[in-house]
Design a protein around this nucleic acid. Sequence first.
DNA 1: TCCTTGACTGGCT
DNA 2: GAGCCAGCCAAGG
Length: 105
Amino acid sequence: MTGESFYQKVYEIVSRIPKGKVLTYKDVAFLAGSLGASRAVGTAMRRNADRAVIPCHRVVGTDGRMHGYAFGGEGAKAEMLKKEGIQFKGNEVDLGVSRWTIDVI
DNA sequence: TCCTTGACTGGCT
DNA sequence: GAGCCAGCCAAGG
């Protein structure tokens, strides 16, 4: 796509995350072309108007924490991840098992 | 055009 | 080991 914004790149990347896998805000920022823009990724997720297409709940912090979720809170986010088969370590996502390894982006 | 906001991260105490 | 502070990036008003 030409002239796509940072947000558009973020949405495209997040929409490719397979069920049962997660990415970190840092990873998404890097893949979107701006390592360090993790906060901007969070902003993009919060402003995401179509969570049916953009699985924003599959994006977590580097330590596996939720940090937030605009559609029901962190608890709802965790529940959705658990239903998808994401492995948890206490209240945090076990990135060692459920972190998505990008093959083709 | 500038300032503020935000679902972050890394380092320090 | 946990909590606090400062820095970085992009978008909106």
